[in-house]
């Protein structure tokens, strides 16, 4: 396994991706809504006279942090399904597979390409979110809420773990899908469990404190490892060429 080979594929895929306008929108739109939209919500719903109290506000802000995690599961599906199904549509797999690159190098390259742009977008938007959220809430709270342990865990641990999960899942569904859209649709299912957790926290069934987040991380890590083996098993040269095209 040579990382340099994977990197060649990754940079190619990212370059192709950046030239596709429609694909770019999703990468810009979601982070924009989350990073600017959520602080606006805080501003108009929470931090005003007669709004949420300084005890309710942190709960809302905490659950908003969770949006980044959902983004981390959703955004890579757009890229992963493109970079996997896209090759199938352009019929470019055959010359690619004839080149001296191993299956795992190719899979790693595609995964890196689906990982870096969304995770980058999430990190940038999370910084914007934290700054704006602090701005609109520090009068009410009397202190700067972000950064804190919860969002630190979400960004540094859970975000990469769920992005990986999402990519692995996409590899598995892409092997069956005939077009990028279908793969994307099926890819979105990976965000469902996270949405369920979010809803559970909203209705008060669980609280998204650091220990809950650590437990979720551990569960996703295990899922990552299981899906790693399943996805590498799916990603076999002859299978890809004869079944995927």
């Amino acid at each position: 396994m040579r990382i340099s080979k994977a990197w060649i594929v990754a940079t190619k895929d990212m370059r192709v991706f950046l030239r596709r306008k429609s694909a770019n929108y999703s990468l810009v739109l979601f982070p924009l809504i989350v990073s600017v939209g959520l602080p606006l919500v805080l501003r108009f719903v929470g931090a005003r006279q007669g709004g949420l109290s300084s005890t309710r506000l942190p709960i809302l802000m905490n659950s908003f942090s969770f949006f980044f995690l959902i983004g981390a599961a959703l955004l890579p599906t757009v890229l992963a399904s493109y970079s996997l199904v896209g090759e199938k549509i352009e019929k470019s797999l055959e010359p690619l597979l004839a080149a001296p690159i191993t299956d795992s190098e190719l899979l790693l390259g595609k995964s890196i390409a689906a990982f870096i742009p969304p995770v980058g977008a999430i990190y940038i938007s999370s910084i914007v979110f934290m700054v704006l959220a602090n701005l609109v809430t520090h009068n009410t709270l009397g202190y700067l809420y972000f950064p804190n342990w919860a969002i630190g865990l979400i960004l540094l641990l859970l975000t990469p773990l769920s992005a990986i999960l999402s990519i692995e899942w996409c590899v598995i569904v892409s092997s069956r899908a005939s077009d990028a859209r279908a793969a994307q649709m099926q890819g979105l299912f990976i965000a469902l469990p996270l949405l369920a957790i979010y809803v559970a926290s909203e209705v008060g069934a669980i609280s998204l404190n650091t220990s809950t987040l650590l437990i979720i991380s551990a569960v996703i890590l295990v899922a990552d490892i299981i899906l790693f083996f399943l996805s590498t098993k799916t990603f076999q040269r002859e299978e890809i060429l004869t079944k995927w095209t």
């Binding site: 190619k12 370059r15 690619l96």
Partner: peptide, 24 residues
């Protein structure tokens, strides 16, 4: 190999297509 479907990357330029393969 020149397969029966050329399989170029439509979004890359001619020289980018070649450069990618040269690197591979």
């Amino acid at each position: 190999l020149i397969p029966d479907n050329v399989g170029l990357y439509d979004d890359l330029t001619a020289s980018e297509n070649l450069d990618f393969y040269g690197k591979l």
